[in-house]
Design a protein around this nucleic acid. Structure first.
Lengths: 241, 241
DNA sequence: CGGATCGTTGAGTTGTATCAAGACGGGTGG
DNA sequence: CCACCCGTCTTGATACAACTCAACGATCCG
């Protein structure tokens, strides 16, 4: 399991020993079909899951059958650490593509975190990173136009996929429909379609099937007002202290 | 300092002993004038601050001088715990009214967290609570109408003020202008004004100066689709494990 | 080949923003 | 104590971004 869990270390940097311990804590793997939910709001899971392969998202349902995707997950991400920290989930986690997950029981995680404060802080930082991304999304959805919002989201996804080595030099594959892009940006699927067309016409991106090509990274960044700072918590911050 | 820090224990439940230790860690208090910033995005603070008295908010600035408030803080809240966990701030924290803060140096916090895993997890849960509120705001701003958004926000603020004993039976005092409500909900100040008028006409709330009276809690909750679950992480979850 | 899902485009509607002007109210200085 | 001023609230008129509804085309898959 170690080499799988090691993936996590790219995103939430762990020492080799810490990665090994987390890997030992993972008892098994499990799979998820597209559209299948891992957990629902209100659930009290007894294990955490690391996304080893595939793409997932977190989402909330609001009145009127509307859906808001609040985060996209990439391989290496902890999907439901909140279940460990807070007890109950307050959002759903669903698969966007076939997914493979590592399962880490809460009991094992608790033992690890108690015995190893440094590892606990690393996981704590992961929660803080989630919070930072949520915060950026509040600003994205609240104060940017549709055109800016989608540009910003594409920048974020590209940056995160690059961090885990899953992007190409100028683009990435991503199994997300326009309707889901709408659920993530608070827009209608129809409007997402028009805005994507605009971004394409402006020479910023190209779309082929499920692959996104970024023709002008600087342009896209400028449009979205994207600053990657919030995605890069300083891994050595507490170690230095 | 203990009786001041104890306030924190109402919101992020701490044992008496833990509250005492945190109180000992706080070296001094400081004050903030309205509109004054405690920290800015990019800062690397060397201490955390507990809001003892007054009201503050966290906000981001996006292109075009637009502002998005991403969270309101009430007395008892940790304002900049992210500075400790992540290293650098990625949002600003500003005072809405005159504020009194307790100052806890990162060095003291690190020592406390290392020596006391249970206290560390309590603080970790505080980060998770912040994340849960951000996530709810993403859904609020992304998928609710102006009318629903403002109703939901008022429900949240009332609930949180009730948790720390600062609400009246059916209302609360809150030094927030309509322009700031707009910055928090992603709306213009003019539109906030119209929607508040609508909520008043519909018999849900009344406003007098800076005080909010809730005439129909059930109505307001129904309109906003408000479920307080995300504000109430189970404090005993990890203790039981 | 048929059905399902997703993308695309058009026409019309609506929610919310913007601009502008005036009313109110609380503080300050004369 | 009054006059003034500044920030805030309120209201109206107009503009526009984004939504909805609807139809059709393109793919993919069984």
């Amino acid at each position: 399991m170690h080499h799988l869990i090691r993936k996590l270390s790219r995103f939430t940097p762990l020492s080799t020993e810490e990665a090994k311990r987390l890997g030992d804590a993972a008892t098994r793997t499990t799979r998820l079909a597209p559209e299948q939910d891992l957990v629902r709001a209100g659930d009290r899971p007894d294990a955490c899951h690391v996304l080893l392969d595939g793409f997932a998202c977190r989402y909330k349902l609001v009145a009127d059958a509307k859906r808001q995707i609040i985060a996209f997950s990439v391989p290496g991400d902890l999907l439901d650490l909140d279940g460990f920290v807070a007890g109950a989930m307050n959002y759903n986690v669903g698969a966007l593509s076939p997914c493979t997950l590592a399962v880490i029981p809460h009991t094992a995680l608790l033992a690890l975190a108690s015995a190893n404060p440094r590892l606990a802080r690393t996981l704590w930082r992961d929660t803080a990173l989630d919070a930072a991304i949520f915060a950026e999304w509040v600003a994205n959805v609240g104060r940017r136009t549709a055109y800016q919002r989608i540009a910003h989201l594409l920048c974020e996804v590209f940056t995160r996929l690059t961090q885990v080595g899953l992007a190409r030099e100028a683009g990435f594959d991503w199994p997300v429909t326009q309707a889901k892009l709408g659920d993530a940006t608070g827009l209608s699927d129809v409007h997402v379609n028009r805005v994507l067309g605009e971004l394409r016409r402006d020479g910023l991106i190209r779309l082929h099937g499920r692959s996104v090509l970024i023709d002008s990274w600087d342009g896209l960044r400028a449009v979205g007002g994207f600053d990657p700072g919030y995605l890069c918590p300083d891994p050595d911050h507490l170690a230095r202290a």
